[in-house]
């Protein structure tokens, strides 16, 4: 049994070589000490991004509010940035944003939730494994493609059925935006529902309740906060969506509730003004940032609200 000790004797003296190498490892020691700092500096780029966004929006928006009173901006119903006597009322844009979001949520809310119910409560493992990746494809389609689809396909169909609808209108992009948001609501709500413990379902099913009754009376109430959070995130997504409404809803700045007409959202306004090469330093240029700041506050509030809801009301199972 002496092969082991022989092996060590014959062997090169590794431990000695290591000890010698240790002495000359000062450079790598220094490197080792610098690593955390280097990584921290790279990680702080994300913080710089936030600061950059805040600085950009705030500094330019303040310029705008020096020229247009805040109160006038937020309560004005007339938006005529290019006219001789320009008026900068934000309400038409807020109106367009809210209406397109409502239309989108009319589609995405129920269909997304019902998809989630099917995937979480009814679908077999095999069916779910096929359907979920397909739904993810829907989420991966670039928004410009949806915009094209709304403008060249959905709008003509709507107009064939309902001739009063204009060539550019808020209805068609709202509907298409809803389709785009379905996978988001479906997958987030499904997550919330699958995390409801099976014991709760079994308790209901064992008393003779049908799957539908169990879903409506046990699963959905238990997953309610997660479902609401997914809706809020969907709303945030709709508010920030740009290309679909830019292409299919045109640039009319009318303050109207008529969904057959063209309306402009905050995002579409930014595209129009930035793309129109507004001269830097002009009031219309600064208005870009005031609108973007409002948009930023809207979506940030929604995202924080979603996180608050899912944390605060998280069910303890």
């Amino acid at each position: 049994m002496s092969k082991n000790s022989e092996a060590k004797k014959e062997a090169v003296n590794v431990s000695e070589m290591i000890a010698q190498n240790k002495k000359k490892k000062n450079i790598s020691n220094l490197f080792e000490k610098l690593i955390p700092t280097i990584l921290f500096l790279l990680a702080s780029i994300t913080i710089l991004t936030t600061l950059g966004i805040l600085y950009t929006l705030l500094s330019q928006a303040i310029e705008f509010f020096k020229r247009v009173p805040i109160w006038e901006f937020f309560t004005g119903t007339v938006l005529k940035p290019l006219s001789q006597n320009p008026e900068f009322g934000l309400l038409p844009l807020i109106n367009g944003t809210i209406i397109s979001t409502i239309i989108a949520m009319f589609v995405a809310g129920p269909i997304g939730l019902m998809s989630a119910i099917y995937l979480s409560e009814y679908a077999s493992d095999r069916v779910r494994r096929i359907l979920k990746p397909l739904l993810e494809i829907l989420a991966g389609i670039p928004t410009i493609v949806y915009g094209f689809f709304a403008f060249t396909f959905v709008t003509p169909i709507i107009r064939a059925i309902w001739p009063e609808v204009e060539a550019t209108n808020i209805l068609s992009p709202g509907l298409v935006m809803g389709v785009m948001i379905i996978p988001m609501i479906a997958s987030l709500s499904e997550d919330a529902m699958t995390s409801v413990p099976n014991a709760m379902r079994e308790g209901s099913l064992a008393m003779g309740a049908t799957k539908l009754e169990t879903t409506l009376k046990v699963v959905i109430p238990a997953a309610f906060s997660g479902i609401i959070a997914s809706f809020v995130l969907g709303i945030s997504r709709a508010i920030g969506e740009t290309m679909i409404v830019t292409i299919a809803s045109g640039s009319s700045k009318n303050f109207t509730f008529d969904i057959t007409q063209s309306m402009q959202t905050m995002t579409a306004y930014i595209v129009e003004v930035a793309g129109g090469e507004a001269p830097a330093g002009s009031t219309i240029y600064y208005s870009l940032y005031a609108v973007a700041l409002t948009l930023f506050v809207f979506t940030l509030t929604m995202n924080l609200l979603a996180r608050y809801i899912s944390r605060k009301f998280r069910e303890e199972y």
Binding site: T46, I239, G240, A292, F296, T299, L300
Partner: peptide
């Protein structure tokens, strides 16, 4: 940051 609209 993940929730900031791309246009921003």
């Amino acid at each position: 940051l993940a929730g900031v609209p791309s246009i921003v």
